[in-house]
Design a protein around this nucleic acid. Sequence first.
DNA 1: TTGTGTTTTATTGCCTCC
DNA 2: GGAGGCAATAAAACACAA
Length: 269
Amino acid sequence: MVSFEDVNRANRGSRSFFRALDQEENGDEDLDEYFHHPEKKRRLTVDQVQFLEKSFEVENKLEPERKIQLAKEVGLQPRQVAIWFQNRRARWKTKQLEKDYDALQASFNSLKADYDNLLKEKDKLKQEVVQLTDKLLVKEKEKGNSEEPQQKLVVAEQESKVSMAVGCKQEDMSSAKSDIFDSESPHYTDGVVHSSLLEAADSSYAFEPEQSDLSQDEEDNLSKGLLHPPPIPYIFPKLEDDGDYSDPPATSCNFGFPLEDHAFWSWAY
DNA sequence: TTGTGTTTTATTGCCTCC
DNA sequence: GGAGGCAATAAAACACAA
């Protein structure tokens, strides 16, 4: 239990109970002013503040009994003690929000770095697809026209497989995004943020908003968790022609696994 | 000394809970 | 309906550069 006597004794010599008493040259005048003009706003002494701070650390809420007890010990009106705790809680909350903001900023930076890396990887894979396609076309030309119909079929199949392979990677990324943004908003427990966004920061998940770079507004929105659904991934170009995106595409690269995450599709389309 | 920005104390109005 | 909490705000006190 915190005792005001202890705190006061520890600080004796540095500051007296009332600031007015510190100023010897006009101490009587200030003291007189203090007691005769109680409406005048006065700062609490260092001792009083230290005592209240210690009490606040123990428990940041005030029951009526405790309020009166504290007021007696520290020499203030119970109402002043209540006001001090009220303001102190407000300051604590502000600080806590700053901490939470910093934590979210850090996790955003981490996710952004992951995302940038995945973009690079995706570009690299696209390059590979182009190169392989070119090679196949060259081979086709070399072999002449006699086998052309069948050869074209083979080329198309090869392209399809490569495309699906790249596409699946993207779906993984998009699902990860869905996991992050579909879940609940950050919630507070004892002033600490528990957010899936924060938890995701440690994972290697990232998402795929668009092939082009994000605009500044999008960057801002992303940082606020307000990113709009991205355009359709380029891996399903044919589906765009169908115009019906209400259900997951049957030709998706789930390779026979059931598509459980319909939230992703409603989000993506 | 003074102008200005920040911190601290206090008030007001609204909301929730009992 | 009263008590207590919170957000917004006022205003005094304080810090500090110019």
